[in-house]
Structures are given as C-alpha cells and as structure tokens.
Amino acid sequence: MLDDFLVRAALAGLGVALAAAPLGCFVVWRRMAYFGDATSHAALLGVALALATDLPILAGVLLVALTMALIVSALSERHVSTDALLGVLAHAGLAFGLVAISLVPGQRVDLSAYLFGDILAVSPLDILVIWGGAALVALLLILRWQAMLTATLNPDLATASGGNPRREQLILTIALAITVAVAIKVVGALLIAAMLIIPAAAARPFARSPESMAVCAVAMGALSVFAGLYASFAYDTPTGPSIVSAAALLFAISTGLSPMVRGK
C-alpha cells in the first residue's frame, strides 16, 4: 500500500540525503563534526526567532544557522584547538534555543517536531523547498569540488596553487546552513548532524576515491531513509530517529565488512 504521506516523506528524506551525504563527506574529512552539531542545534534558536517575529521558519533557521556557522568558522580559523569551544557552542545553541522557544509569548509549540523532525507531515511545498535547497547545495559542491578538495588537504597548498581556501570554507559554511534549514523538518535539529556524518562514514570502506565516497554516501543516506520509514510505519516508532538508527546500523555493517572489502 502506497500511502500518499509515505511517498511525500520518502521524497523529503531523499532530498535531504542528496544534500547532506556529500556535504557530510567534507564534514568528516575536515573533522568538523562539532561544526555540524553547533550549526544544527542553533537552528532551534532560529525557530524561536521565527516564531517571535512571524518570519517563516525556514528564513529564521537559515539566518541563525548561517550566523552560527560563520562564527564557528571564524573561531576555528583563529584557534588551533577548538574542540572544547565547539562543544560549548553546540550545546549552548541547543539550550538557548529551547529556552527561547519557551519564552515566545502566546503559543504552545510542539517542540518535538523541531527536535526530532516531522517527516510524515511534510507538504508538497515542503518537498519543493527541500529539493530546491538540496539542488543548490549539490550544485555548489559540484562546481567547487576540485578547489574544496584541495583546500581540505591543506589551505597553504591550495593558496600556493592559486586557490582561495577561505572562499571554499565560506561556501561550505553556506551549504551547511542551507542543509540544516531544509533538514530540520525531516530529522529535527538534534539529528541533522547524524545525517551528515553517518552516511559518509558508512560509505568510507567502499570508496577508493573522494567522488565514489560521496556517491556511496548518498546511496547510504537514501537506504537509511527507506529503512527508517519502513520501520517507523511497521513498528510505529518515531520516524526521524528511526532513519538515523537505520543509518547507524548501516555504518556498523559496513565497518564490519571493511576488512573483507579492503582485501586484508
């Protein structure tokens, strides 16, 4: 039985996987896991801002996520050791977001929709926005692929061969904010970072090149979406967390298989 809302949910999830998986590869390669956390948790603050000012949720989230991503990006450029700082920002973003939403006057908000996503309630318009954002992110990554890879290896190396690593970092930052903004409806602020990192990590053992890793990560993400939706439908579990659980299982399986894949 192909329920309409399931088809819409699958389409929304695929859109998110399309953007998050290849972007997640860069997050993993550049060791920016906390960067993803900080940015996506700050999205809650964006929700609060939108509710308080009657902005569309998407605009509020995009604005705050972008601000947070730029702050984190600037900080990580200045300090060598940012691990603790990023941890502070990631959790502070979450805490302030929750507090801010509770302070918005006049409405009782369904918090769990923003924390864990509400993929079964996506509208056709939501799907359009998600695919629009995903297409934009994919386009940015494809256009800047070579330059971003070089900058990921070593910023000075990129500069010496005529590149501009700061620009690439900025583009990644913008792509991350867009992804967070369109993914919050699907997996929620708490689990967006998981959709970035887990499919990429699960793809690693099967890849011999950066490109094949990105493609494989998209496949892993898509598979997680289908498996999570199915589990959610069959066992009545929350959908966003089910999708992330499926991704984590895929990661465990692919890591277990990796000695065989590598022929060692």
Binding site: Q146, T150, L153, S161, G162, G163, A201, S209, S212
Partner: peptide, 14 residues
C-alpha cells in the same frame, strides 16, 4: 576517512 590515490591527488586542483 578521505580515500585518495596518488593519481587523484596529483590532479588537484587542476
């Protein structure tokens, strides 16, 4: 986590 052959590396950025 970054799979990269020497050949692919030498093709960066051009």
């Amino acid at each position: 986590t970054l799979p990269l052959t020497v050949r692919r590396f030498l093709n960066l950025p051009h």
